[in-house]
């Protein structure tokens, strides 16, 4: 702070046009040099920060979840973990539970729902009396077929139904994926 340096004060007002031009050039040069000096670190820094945008999830494969026998054909949804290999940044994790699904079977249908609420991403519960799905966060509710069953429900869409396939007679395979919450269209998180 102390400015007891012996040199005289700068002549800003008394300078000729030549001096002013030199001053301007020096200032512009300082800013340009400093800007260049910071360019590389800032550029590479931004690239790292936004790197996740460059990574798009592979199309999810079908994953075996359980057997038909584990899902009685009574129309009551049952919850199953989805266990598969997962890459988390620098780790590959084998047989990790990556999420869960509700499977619901009737005499002539088999449905799979992602347990995640399309409203704000909570884990939807099956009501204790098995009559419908209720989200414990903001009270979105859905009927057993996954459709929004209350006009005041905050969920903008039905529960996210997943592609499901029965292989080898009784193996239930599900294409497990998550979808962007809070919007009426079902857009996969990619």
């Amino acid at each position: 702070m102390s400015s007891q340096a012996p040199h005289p004060p700068r002549e800003e007002t008394t300078g000729t046009s030549g001096q002013a031009r030199r001053g301007f050039l020096a200032g512009a040069g300082a800013i340009a040099a400093a800007g260049l000096a910071f360019l590389a670190p800032v550029w590479s820094g931004l690239r790292v920060v936004f790197d996740p945008l460059r990574r798009t999830a592979r199309d999810p494969a079908l994953v075996p979840v359980t057997r038909l026998a584990a899902v009685p054909a009574d129309g009551v949804p049952r919850k199953f973990r989805v266990v598969t290999d997962r890459v988390d940044a620098w780790n590959t994790q084998r047989n990790m539970p990556v999420g869960a699904v509700y499977l619901r079977r009737t005499e002539d249908s088999l449905q799979a729902f992602n347990v995640i609420c399309p409203h704000a991403g909570c884990f939807v519960n099956l009501a204790a009396d098995h009559s419908r799905f209720v989200c414990p966060c903001h009270k979105s509710s859905f009927d057993l077929e996954g459709a929004v069953d209350d006009p005041a429900s905050p969920s903008p869409r039905d529960m996210d139904e997943l592609e499901v396939e029965v292989r080898e007679g009784d193996e239930i395979w599900v294409r497990f994926q998550n979808f962007l919450p809070g919007r009426s269209d079902k857009t996969p998180v990619a």
């Binding site: 996740p52 990574r55 988390d88 940044a89 998550n178």
Partner: peptide, 13 residues
């Protein structure tokens, strides 16, 4: 969201 979360899912990043 993706930049904040560091990817599609919650994890290390």
């Amino acid at each position: 969201q993706k930049v904040l979360v560091g990817g599609a899912d919650y994890g290390h990043l």
